[in-house]
Amino acid sequence: MTLTLTVPPGAKVRVRITNENGETTEIEVEPGETVTITLPAGSTVRVEVEVVDPDGRKRTETFTLKP
């Protein structure tokens, strides 16, 4: 399973991925970048995406991906 994120110009994104064992991976994606994350097959993962807009506003979306 893959997750692809494209960050709009001016925004910053931090992604936290937590697996079933509670292990967390965190990455930051710079403005204008596209990143593809390969998620472990057969695992349920929690993905938290934090977006910081150019004006400093933050918003966070959290979702769970199941196999």
Score class of each variant (00 low, 15 high):
Met1Tyr: 11
Met1His: 09
Thr2Met: 07
Thr2Asn: 05
Thr2Glu: 03
Thr2His: 09
Leu3Asn: 04
Leu3Tyr: 05
Leu3Gln: 02
Leu3Ser: 03
Leu3Cys: 14
Thr4Gln: 05
Thr4Asn: 06
Thr4Ala: 07
Thr4Cys: 15
Thr4Phe: 10
Leu5Val: 07
Leu5Glu: 02
Leu5Ile: 07
Leu5Phe: 10
Thr6Tyr: 10
Thr6Ile: 09
Thr6His: 11
Thr6Met: 11
Val7Pro: 01
Val7Lys: 04
Val7Thr: 05
Val7Ile: 10
Val7Phe: 15
Val7Glu: 13
Pro8Cys: 14
Pro8Met: 12
Pro8Leu: 12
Pro8Phe: 10
Pro8Ser: 12
Pro8Gly: 14
Pro8Trp: 14
Pro9Lys: 08
Pro9Glu: 10
Pro9Gly: 07
Pro9Asn: 09
Pro9Gln: 07
Pro9Met: 06
Gly10Met: 10
Gly10Ala: 12
Ala11Lys: 01
Ala11Asp: 07
Ala11His: 03
Ala11Val: 01
Ala11Gln: 01
Ala11Arg: 01
Ala11Leu: 00
Lys12Ile: 08
Lys12Ala: 13
Lys12His: 11
Lys12Glu: 15
Lys12Gly: 08
Lys12Ser: 14
Lys12Tyr: 08
Val13Ser: 05
Val13Lys: 02
Val13Trp: 02
Val13Cys: 11
Val13Glu: 02
Val13Asn: 01
Val13Met: 04
Arg14Trp: 08
Arg14Pro: 05
Arg14Gly: 12
Arg14Thr: 14
Arg14Gln: 12
Arg14Cys: 12
Arg14Glu: 13
Val15Met: 09
Val15Leu: 07
Val15Ser: 03
Val15Gly: 03
Arg16Gly: 10
Arg16Val: 04
Arg16Leu: 04
Arg16Gln: 03
Arg16Lys: 05
Ile17Phe: 13
Ile17Tyr: 15
Thr18Pro: 09
Thr18Ile: 14
Thr18Gly: 10
Asn19His: 06
Asn19Phe: 10
Asn19Ser: 09
Asn19Val: 15
Asn19Ile: 14
Asn19Tyr: 12
Asn19Arg: 10
Asn19Met: 09
Glu20Arg: 05
Glu20Trp: 07
Glu20Cys: 11
Glu20Ser: 05
Asn21Cys: 13
Asn21Arg: 09
Asn21Gln: 11
Asn21Leu: 07
Asn21Lys: 04
Gly22Ser: 08
Gly22Pro: 06
Gly22Arg: 06
Gly22Asp: 13
Gly22Ala: 07
Gly22Leu: 06
Gly22Ile: 09
Gly22Met: 10
Gly22Gln: 09
Glu23Val: 10
Glu23Asp: 10
Glu23Phe: 07
Thr24Asn: 06
Thr24Ser: 04
Thr24Ala: 12
Thr24Asp: 06
Thr25Trp: 11
Thr25Asn: 05
Thr25Lys: 06
Thr25Val: 13
Thr25Phe: 12
Thr25Asp: 05
Glu26Asp: 04
Glu26Ile: 03
Glu26Trp: 05
Glu26Arg: 08
Glu26Thr: 04
Ile27Asn: 13
Ile27Met: 10
Ile27Trp: 10
Ile27Ser: 10
Glu28Ser: 09
Glu28Arg: 05
Val29His: 09
Val29Met: 13
Val29Tyr: 09
Val29Gly: 06
Val29Lys: 10
Val29Leu: 06
Glu30Trp: 03
Glu30Arg: 09
Glu30Tyr: 04
Glu30Met: 05
Glu30Gln: 05
Glu30Thr: 13
Glu30Leu: 04
Pro31Tyr: 09
Pro31Glu: 05
Gly32Thr: 13
Gly32Leu: 08
Gly32His: 11
Gly32Pro: 12
Gly32Arg: 12
Gly32Val: 15
Glu33Leu: 09
Glu33Pro: 12
Glu33Tyr: 11
Glu33Asp: 11
Glu33Arg: 07
Thr34Ala: 11
Thr34His: 11
Thr34Met: 11
Thr34Cys: 13
Thr34Val: 14
Val35Ser: 08
Val35Glu: 02
Val35Lys: 05
Val35Pro: 09
Val35Met: 08
Val35Thr: 08
Thr36Phe: 10
Thr36Tyr: 11
Thr36Gly: 08
Ile37Val: 10
Ile37Tyr: 08
Ile37Gln: 09
Ile37Met: 08
Ile37Leu: 07
Ile37Lys: 10
Thr38Ala: 08
Thr38Ile: 06
Thr38His: 08
Thr38Arg: 07
Thr38Lys: 05
Thr38Ser: 06
Thr38Cys: 15
Thr38Val: 09
Thr38Phe: 12
Leu39Ala: 14
Leu39His: 04
Leu39Gln: 05
Pro40Trp: 15
Pro40Ala: 08
Pro40Arg: 12
Ala41Leu: 12
Ala41Cys: 13
Ala41Ile: 13
Ala41Gln: 07
Ala41Tyr: 13
Gly42Asn: 08
Gly42Ser: 14
Ser43Cys: 12
Ser43Thr: 12
Ser43Trp: 04
Thr44Tyr: 11
Thr44Arg: 02
Thr44Ser: 07
Thr44Asp: 04
Thr44Trp: 14
Val45Asn: 08
Arg46Trp: 09
Arg46Gln: 06
Val47Trp: 01
Val47Gln: 00
Val47Arg: 01
Val47Asn: 00
Val47Tyr: 01
Val47Cys: 02
Val47Ser: 00
Val47Asp: 00
Glu48Leu: 02
Glu48Arg: 02
Val49Tyr: 01
Val49His: 00
Val49Leu: 05
Val49Pro: 00
Glu50Ala: 02
Glu50Leu: 01
Glu50Asp: 04
Glu50Gly: 00
Glu50Gln: 04
Glu50Cys: 04
Glu50Lys: 01
Val51Leu: 02
Val51Ala: 01
Val51His: 06
Val51Glu: 01
Val52Phe: 02
Val52Pro: 00
Val52Gln: 05
Val52Lys: 02
Val52Gly: 01
Val52Ser: 03
Asp53Phe: 15
Asp53His: 04
Asp53Met: 14
Pro54Ile: 07
Pro54Ala: 12
Asp55Leu: 01
Asp55Phe: 02
Asp55Cys: 14
Asp55Asn: 02
Asp55Gly: 01
Asp55Pro: 00
Gly56Ala: 00
Gly56Thr: 00
Gly56Ile: 00
Gly56Glu: 00
Gly56Val: 00
Gly56Tyr: 00
Gly56Asn: 00
Arg57Phe: 04
Arg57Gly: 03
Arg57Gln: 09
Arg57Ile: 06
Arg57Thr: 14
Lys58Trp: 02
Lys58Phe: 02
Lys58Gly: 01
Lys58Ser: 05
Lys58Val: 11
Arg59Lys: 03
Arg59Pro: 00
Arg59His: 11
Arg59Asp: 01
Arg59Thr: 08
Thr60Ala: 01
Thr60Gly: 00
Thr60His: 01
Glu61Tyr: 15
Glu61Leu: 15
Glu61Phe: 15
Glu61Trp: 15
Glu61Asn: 03
Thr62Asp: 01
Thr62Arg: 01
Phe63Asn: 01
Phe63Met: 04
Phe63Gly: 01
Phe63Pro: 00
Thr64Pro: 03
Thr64Leu: 12
Thr64Arg: 00
Thr64Tyr: 15
Thr64His: 06
Thr64Gly: 00
Thr64Ser: 02
Leu65Ile: 14
Leu65Cys: 15
Leu65Ala: 01
Leu65Pro: 01
Leu65Ser: 01
Leu65Asp: 00
Leu65His: 01
Leu65Lys: 00
Leu65Glu: 01
Lys66Ile: 14
Lys66His: 14
Lys66Gln: 14
Pro67Ile: 15
Pro67Ser: 07
Pro67Asn: 12
Pro67Gly: 07
